[in-house]
Design a protein around this nucleic acid. Sequence first.
DNA 1: CAGCATCCGTTATGATACTG
DNA 2: CAGTATCATAACGGATGCTG
Lengths: 143, 143
Amino acid sequence: MITREHEGNPVRSLSGAVWGFDFPEGAPTDPGVCPVRDVLDRVGQKWTLLILISLDSGPKRFSQLQRMVGDISKRMLTQTLRQLERDGLISRTVYPTKPPSVEYALTLLGESVLAPIAQLTSWAEDHHDDIRQAREKFDGLIE
Amino acid sequence: MITREHEGNPVRSLSGAVWGFDFPEGAPTDPGVCPVRDVLDRVGQKWTLLILISLDSGPKRFSQLQRMVGDISKRMLTQTLRQLERDGLISRTVYPTKPPSVEYALTLLGESVLAPIAQLTSWAEDHHDDIRQAREKFDGLIE
DNA sequence: CAGCATCCGTTATGATACTG
DNA sequence: CAGTATCATAACGGATGCTG
C-alpha cells in the first residue's frame, strides 16, 4: 500500500481501481509504512539490481560477486547484501573453512522479484531511443 | 543495455539470454551510457512515481499536483517534472492567462511505462507480508 | 500561479586501513 | 576470504524568500 497513517487528514483516493491500492493525501512515501516504497527504493539503489541479476545464474561467493558486479566497493557490496538478506530476497551461507567462504543465493522470493524487474528493464530497452531523442530535443530547446 | 565503455577491459556476458542484454565487467551502472540505469534511477526517486500515477487520471496543473502528491515542496515538484518532461514522459503546456496556468499530462511514452511499473508495485503488494516477516526474523536474530 | 535561487542538513557512496 | 571501522565527499531533499 502506498499509504501513510496521518491522523485527522482528509483522505482522497486516486485511481484505486486501476492501481489496486488507495493513494491518500499526506506523505504516501513514508518508508516503514509503505512496502511498495521500500521495494521501489531498493530498485533505485545503485547496486541492488546488479547483484540480484548476478545471482540469477546461481549462488556466488562474496569476492565472486565483487568481480562480477565490477567496481563496487566491499563496503557497498556488504551493505547491499545485508539489505537483500534482511528483506528475504537472498540467503547467506557460511562455510567454516579456513579461510572462510560465504555463499549468497537467491531465495524463492528473490527469484520472483526478477520477473517484474525484467518487465521494467525490458521497457527501458525498448524505449531508450525514444528517451534519448526526447532529451536531445529538450536540451536543444533550452540553450 | 547495462553496459559501460571501459576500454581495454575484459567483457564477460552474464545471463544475456535471459536478460536480453549483455552485462560486462566494468561499472555497468554508469548513467548516460545505460538507459536502463536511467529508468531505474527515476523509479527509485522519491516523487517520480507519485507524479506519474497522479497524472494517470488526466492532465493536472502545477498546484493541483502539489496538493495531490501531498507534502512535496515546490522545488522537488519542479525538479521532478522537468526530468520527466526531458525524458519525454510528460508534456508541459503553458496557458498565457493571468496569472499563468501550466498543464502537465502523460505522453504516450509516459502512459506506456505505467504498465511495467504496475507489475512491480503489484509484486510489492503481493509480497510485502513476506518481506515484513523476513525483516522481523532477521532483526530478531541479530540482537 | 508557477516557478527559480539560495542556504543547509541528511543520506548515499567511495577510499582506505585494519581484523578473525 | 570476508568482512568491519573510519573518514571524506557528493548527491539528495527540504525550507525560505523572490519574481514575472
